[in-house]
C-alpha cells in the first residue's frame, strides 16, 4: 500500500439513532487507489458508515478525514466541494424519475461544470458506453430493469470523474449473472479510472471479486481487516461464521 498516508481515515466513529447504538468507535483507513469492501450483516450500520464518509450524516463522536480534511467540520459549501470528488452508487440506484437517462447522467455536469451542451452529451455517451449501456439516453428510469438502473446509476456517479466511488450494496437484488456484470464493472472502473472505491455488501462472491482489502463490521466496530485471502483463512470465529453463512452460533442478537 502507498506510504503517503490513507486517503480516507475514520477515527472512533460513534453514531446512535435514539436509544440504538449503530456505530461505536469504528476505526478504518482506506488507502489511495484501493478497493475496500466492508462486509457485515443487515442492520449493522454499513450504510450509516457510507453516509458519514460523504457527509450525509453527522457523527455523534469521532471523525472522518478525507485527504486530511475533517468532514463533519465542513459547512454546506465545503461539503459540496468535497462531494464533487465523490461518486456514489445507491442501493436502488436512486435515479431521478422525473428525468431521462441523459439528464440523470449529465445532472452534475449541467449544474456544476462550464461544459457546453454538446460536450455534456459527449461525456454522457462516454459514461454510458463505459457501463455497457450505449444509446439509451432518451429512456426513462421506469423503463429500465434493476441491473440497467444500477449501471445508469454508476454512469451518473462517474460523470464528474470522481476520485472516490462509494457503492451501497452494488449487487443486492440482482440475478447472479447481472451481479457479475456489476462486479466486473467495479473492477474495470478501478483499473481504468484509478479511483479509490469503498463498497459495502453482504455478498461474499462480490466481496472476494472486487476487494483489495475486506473489513468486517460487527457490533459497531471493524473487527477484522485483511486481503480476501486473509479473510478467507481467518481465525476470527465471528468473521468465519459470516463468510460461510452459518446461522447457528455467534451472531444471534444481530438479526431483527
Amino acid at each position: 500500500m502507498s506510504s503517503n498516508g490513507a486517503l480516507i481515515r475514520i477515527e472512533g466513529l460513534h453514531k446512535s439513532f435514539g436509544p440504538k447504538k449503530v456505530l461505536s468507535g469504528l476505526e478504518l483507513d482506506i488507502e489511495r487507489g484501493e478497493t475496500m469492501v466492508v462486509i457485515g450483516g443487515s442492520g449493522t450500520g454499513k450504510s450509516v458508515l457510507l453516509k458519514h464518509i460523504i457527509g450525509l450524516l453527522k457523527p455523534d463522536g469521532g471523525e472522518v478525514y478525507v485527504d486530511g480534511e475533517a468532514v463533519s467540520a465542513l459547512d454546506e459549501k465545503g461539503l459540496n466541494r468535497l462531494r464533487r470528488r465523490f461518486g456514489m452508487l445507491f442501493q436502488g440506484a436512486a435515479l431521478f424519475d422525473s428525468m431521462n437517462v441523459e439528464e440523470n447522467v449529465g445532472f452534475a455536469l449541467t449544474r456544476h461544470s462550464m461544459m457546453s451542451t454538446a460536450e455534456i452529451a459527449e461525456r454522457v455517451a462516454g459514461c454510458l458506453e463505459m457501463v455497457g449501456m450505449p444509446g439509451i439516453q432518451k429512456l426513462h428510469p421506469s423503463e429500465l430493469s434493476g441491473g440497467m438502473r444500477k449501471r445508469v446509476g454508476l454512469a451518473r456517479a462517474i460523470a464528474l470523474q470522481p476520485e472516490i466511488i462509494l457503492y451501497d450494496e452494488p449487487t443486492t437484488g440482482l440475478d447472479p449473472i447481472m451481479a457479475d456484470v456489476i462486479n466486473n464493472l467495479i473492477v474495470e472502473m478501478q483499473e481504468r479510472l484509478k479511483v479509490t472505491s469503498i463498497a459495502i455488501t453482504h455478498d461474499m462472491v462480490s466481496a472476494y471479486k472486487i476487494a483489495d482489502r475486506i473489513a468486517m463490521l460487527y457490533q459497531g466496530k471493524i473487527i477484522e481487516t485483511g486481503t480476501p485471502d486473509e479473510i478467507r483463512n481467518t481465525s476470527n470465529r465471528v468473521v468465519e461464521q459470516f463468510i460461510k453463512g452459518d446461522s447457528s452460533g455467534y451472531q444471534q442478537g444481530d438479526s431483527r
Binding site: 457527509g55 450525509l56 464533487r84 445507491f90 451518473r156
Partner: peptide, 14 residues
C-alpha cells in the same frame, strides 16, 4: 424514501 434526496446531496446539489 427512494434515496433521490441523498443522491442530490452527493451530486453537490442542495
Amino acid at each position: 424514501v427512494t434515496e433521490q434526496i441523498d443522491a442530490l446531496h452527493t451530486l453537490a446539489t442542495d
